[in-house]
Computed example of a mutant assay.
Amino acid sequence: MSDVNQEISTPLDCPIRNFSVLLSSTRRGARLARLLATEQLRSWGLPSEDAAHVVAELAANAATHGRTAGRGFRLLMYVVGNTVRIEVTDTCGERPPRLQLPSGADENGRGLVIVEALADRWGVSLGPRPRKTVWAELTVTRSAARR
């Protein structure tokens, strides 16, 4: 069974949608993560702009700071009720991300600031070793969701 594009129903008939893909830890892989996430959210009938920005930042961090030679990162998105959860897992668990405000001249370091601004909740889960997962949850309005 493929781990991409699975949809199941819960006993309460509330659909749980999920999407998972393994990508290369490169700038191209990060860009592809955003494109795939945008298209998947669109196919689910959900607003994609904020979620796409979150995916872009988390994937860029995984490709830049969580990169381990020969290993990729996994993008997982799932929707339960009105919540979209985005998870990006890489194999560099010894370097958890930190939220820090960049100085005005810095061109880098704004990724988690953007995630903090767009997500309702976000965090980091470690393990199993050597992995870490950076996750974010966004609430979508029911009127935006297609039934």
Rank of each mutant, 00 (worst) to 15 (best):
Q40I: 00
L41T: 02
L41D: 02
R42M: 05
R42T: 10
R42Y: 01
S43V: 03
S43K: 13
S43L: 10
W44M: 09
W44V: 06
G45L: 05
G45T: 04
G45D: 06
L46N: 00
L46C: 11
L46S: 08
L46Q: 02
P47S: 12
P47M: 07
S48Q: 11
S48C: 10
D50S: 13
D50K: 15
A51N: 09
A51S: 15
A51K: 09
A51W: 02
A51Y: 04
A52C: 05
A52S: 15
A52K: 11
A52V: 04
H53D: 10
H53C: 14
H53S: 13
H53Q: 15
V54Q: 06
V54P: 07
V54A: 04
V55N: 04
V55T: 07
V55A: 10
A56Y: 00
A56I: 01
A56R: 07
E57P: 00
L58I: 02
L58N: 01
L58H: 00
A59K: 00
A59Y: 00
A60S: 04
N61R: 02
N61S: 08
N61E: 02
N61M: 05
N61Y: 00
N61I: 01
A62G: 05
A62M: 05
A62F: 03
A62T: 05
A62C: 12
A63K: 02
A63L: 02
A63M: 04
T64M: 01
T64Q: 03
H65P: 03
G66E: 12
R67W: 01
R67C: 12
T68D: 03
A69C: 10
A69T: 14
G70M: 09
G70V: 10
R71Y: 06
R71A: 13
G72T: 09
G72K: 12
F73A: 06
F73P: 06
R74T: 14
L75T: 05
L76K: 12
L76D: 13
L76I: 06
M77S: 07
M77I: 15
Y78M: 04
V79F: 03
V79M: 14
V80S: 15
V80D: 11
G81R: 15
G81F: 11
N82V: 11
N82R: 15
V84N: 12
V84Q: 12
V84P: 12
R85L: 02
R85K: 07
I86L: 08
I86H: 03
I86K: 08
E87C: 09
E87L: 04
E87M: 03
V88C: 03
V88T: 00
T89H: 10
T89F: 08
